[in-house]
């Protein structure tokens, strides 16, 4: 008996004017696994993320999280249910300090939140910069800060939009280890990533989007050999 998937996207369509950015897309994510979402530029990956997290209202289809409908909810409501995300373009709060960036998204006991924040900052080696304004950090540091900010709310499902882009090789390895570590704690992770080595190395299952449609789904080995995927990437 298989348990119910943590996230079910069924038949989601999103149009902008005459352009169909996401076309009847369906994904199913099981708890405690890492998934990759790949596709050429403009294939609708970020739009799909936005439809899941409520930043865009889908035109058709359903999104269910832990069995409950979440399409139609506002982004903060989706987040409160336990879905965290990062953005392709960094979106830290530039005029708050690194520490404040983490604290501000929390609720509940303050001391516990601060301990957790300090621990996470140490984890990404930003502890010595905790009182620096986020806007003054380097690109890679902001990226890490955004990553740990997601962890502050302890989400069950984490959507990462190009986490590896712009992160230096040393940090990258730690970041990848961190992602696997989260998976081992039982989190479910969906990654959009352009770096094929990263996404193939991490993911157990990969979804491929092209022109807003899901054209393939399977383990990395199968995807790499899939003719339609190769065509989508190189055929035009």
């Amino acid at each position: 008996m298989q348990t119910r998937p943590i996230l079910e996207v069924s038949g989601v369509t999103k149009r902008f004017g005459g352009v169909t950015a996401v076309n009847r897309c369906s994904l199913s994510l099981a708890r405690g696994k890492i998934y990759g979402l790949i596709g050429p530029n403009g294939s609708g990956k970020t739009t799909l993320f936005n439809c899941i997290t409520g930043l865009e209202r889908r035109d058709e289809g359903e999104v269910r999280f832990k069995g409950g409908r979440i399409d139609g909810l506002k982004p903060h409501q989706v987040a409160r249910r336990g879905i965290g995300r990062t953005f392709q373009i960094i979106r830290v709060f530039p005029e708050l300090t690194a520490l404040e960036n983490l604290l501000v998204v929390t609720q509940g006991p303050f001391e516990a939140a601060r301990r957790r924040a300090e621990e996470l900052l140490r984890f990404v080696t930003l502890d010595r910069l905790q009182n620096e304004y986020a806007g003054n950090l380097s690109y890679g540091q902001q990226k890490l800060l955004e990553f740990v900010r997601v962890l502050m709310t302890d989400p069950e499902l984490i959507l990462l939009d190009e986490p590896a882009a712009g992160v230096n090789p040393t940090l990258l390895n730690e970041l990848l280890a961190a992602i696997t570590g989260l998976r081992d704690q039982g989190k479910t992770i969906l990654i959009v990533e352009h770096d094929m080595k990263v996404v193939m190395g991490l993911s157990e299952t990969i979804f491929v989007l092209d022109y807003g449609e899901k054209i393939a789904e399977g383990p990395p080995g199968v995807i790499q050999a899939d003719a339609r995927v190769i065509e989508a990437y190189f055929g035009r």
Binding site: T53, G54, L55, K74, P75, H76, A79, R80, G84, R85, F87, R91, V92, F93, P94, E95, L96, E100, L103, V104, V105, T106, F110, A113, R149, V150, T153
Partner: peptide, 25 residues
């Protein structure tokens, strides 16, 4: 204050604040 900073996240980045569970409205 931590509570007060939530107001400032609206100025800083409203979309990110929403995505982090802050009811910006």
């Amino acid at each position: 204050s931590r509570f007060g900073l939530k107001f400032m996240t609206i100025r800083e980045d409203e979309v990110a604040a929403e995505a982090m569970g802050i009811d910006t409205a």
